[in-house]
Write a protein that binds this DNA or RNA. Structure first.
Lengths: 340, 340
DNA sequence: TTGTAAGCGTTATCAA
DNA sequence: TTGATAACGCTTACAA
């Protein structure tokens, strides 16, 4: 492996001169710099990241941690992050799994973006206490070294519920995420708030898991207990799609006996039949903002917590409980935004 | 930052003793080891990855490079890789973009899996020459430090073409990937071979890009030049879906006037209407095998190039050119495997 | 403008 | 069984 030592030897200068030249310092003549650059190229010199990281105590790498790689949400999210990182001279690496947590405390990366419940909040607080910089996308955490960039779950769930209620629904199933999921808890809280104001609306909680299988199980339950038109608010699209798949095998037709709305507006939701109503938000913006905030707290700049706004996307999966006989006219525009 | 030096001081031993104890060497008494371990925990000691990597000249991290984060293929692929990596004590990081190429030559990672045409083959050969270990998933490259794990593109494209021909098609559009794409070139080569044996089959190349937009443009072209039933072989599903979307807005019905088959069998392909016929393969196995091979060549074990086998998945997007009037009976089983 | 030298936190060789 | 010490490749005072 060729190091600055080799370059120094060949150029007849000291290693510090080489280092200065390579780093574009102005403490060195243009002449010697170019001489050194030529030799470096000749020798195929490549700096050693570990050595530099060790000395400078920074790697210029940011890490994003995901629970798994298979989510449909992640593509745009990561694209947004990468754009910001690269523009600011950082590299982005994507990690998943408990093993990789060490990247942060072992200082392989300069900061972490967390969308991964395999990190406990205690763990994250510990890292923050030790000076590591973190942005969380999936929980609330109060610490000077931690910033939050959260979805406006409350607005989203409120939009979804009001949409169903506006369509005349009096009975609404709500399929939740896995226990302890922050997003699920927040969305459920909004559901509760909306229904408290609407005495005539009954809602039934079905415990889900944010995965297709959870939606399928919910569908089974709904089919078995069916006794008249109802709506389902799946707290994410993945479950909504599982639910639609299963319902398609039954007597109940979506957009007829059963209306369905999801959350996340993943690409697939445009393709299920009938098109799934859902809560949308810019995944790319979410990622970009998270990266931006992380870079700021690393630079020591003050930041406030951020919130990602959501909109409702309509779909034929919601038509109202009377639509079996009559199709109600729809008063709403195609997309509506809400912000608190 | 607490280092082994701090532990040594507190324990009243030398840093080498600490290092031995921490690394589970048997050159140290159980007594001193446990004493040191206790102190390490007390001080919240975390090893420094950069220092270790610098000294040991290995990071126990493998990198996978993707052209972008948004592909639907990647979830399972990465899951497969991660499983193997973790089982073998490696961490996996996912990288994208030209900036991140440096991870390999700068020795941040011990090896790379490449599914990313932003790496030129010359670049990869250079890295291999310098001793870096590489597995390529998207090209053929002959070098002792490079291993290939490739899709059986030839079998896949052959299956697809024969499927269309069996259904009576005499006119087949083939929508290609972007220029220089290895997969596209290979699949196209198989198309050529199949049609050379079938004098009565006409095929028309439409240049695509492996993205939705390419499929849409292909659809426009096909709509404009339509003069009778035809089939389309999109060299990946993404384009096939773009094509279906656009065709849905036209007079031409898929599975009626136009039959469509794709390649990759991405999740979405199960949801488009009518269900898309496609070429399937285990993405997870692909990833797992790639990781396995990489770890082997890092360990200096000899490996042969590997091939991922493919199957045909039928769909109602292919019914035969006469299906406008008559539905032909289908002699085939639901999935068929081919291997050369 | 360049060189000397210390040190980042490890591992590993060699003596004790 | 332990300790002193030299690396690993780089950056950066400080000296010349």
């Amino acid at each position: 492996m060729v190091s600055i030592k080799d370059i120094a030897k060949k150029a007849g200068v000291s290693i510090s001169t080489v280092s200065y030249a390579l780093n574009g310092s102005n403490k060195v003549t243009d002449e010697t710099r170019s001489k050194i650059l030529v030799i470096a190229k000749e020798l195929n010199y490549v700096p050693n990241a570990a050595a530099r990281t060790l000395k400078k105590r920074e790697s210029r790498i940011l890490g994003v941690f995901l629970t798994d790689f298979s989510g449909d949400v992640y593509g745009d999210l990561l694209t947004g992050m990468k754009a910001i990182c690269n523009a600011q001279g950082y590299d982005l690496i994507v990690c998943s799994g408990k093993q990789s947590h060490r990247m942060l405390p072992e200082r392989m990366i300069d900061g972490a973006i967390i969308l991964d419940h395999t990190f406990s909040s205690e763990e994250l607080m510990q890292y923050a206490d030790r000076g590591h910089k973190i942005v969380v996308l999936d929980r609330e955490l109060k610490h000077p070294n931690i910033n939050q960039v959260l979805l406006d779950n409350k607005a989203g769930a409120t939009l979804a519920m009001e949409y169903l209620i506006e369509h005349g629904h009096k009975k609404i199933y709500v399929v939740t995420g896995p226990e302890g999921s922050f997003d699920s808890v927040q969305r459920l809280k909004a559901v509760r708030q909306v229904t408290e104001r609407q005495a005539d609306v009954e809602w039934i909680e079905i415990v889900g898991d944010f995965e297709k299988s959870g939606g399928e199980r919910a569908a089974d339950h709904i089919i078995q207990t069916y006794n008249g038109p109802a709506a389902v608010f799946c707290l994410n699209d993945e479950m909504a799609i599982g639910l639609c798949d299963r319902l398609a095998d039954s007597e109940l037709e979506i957009g007829k006996q059963i209306d369905v709305i999801g959350f996340d507006h993943i690409e697939l939701s445009n393709y299920v039949q009938p098109k799934l109503a859902s809560i949308d938000y810019s995944k790319r913006k979410w990622g970009a903002l998270a990266a931006e905030q992380l870079i700021k707290i690393i630079a020591g700049e003050p930041v406030d917590h951020e919130r990602i706004y959501v909109t409702l996307v309509e779909g034929e999966s919601v038509t109202g409980p009377n639509s079996v006989e009559v199709r109600l006219p729809m008063p709403n525009a195609n997309e509506r935004a809400v912000s608190y």
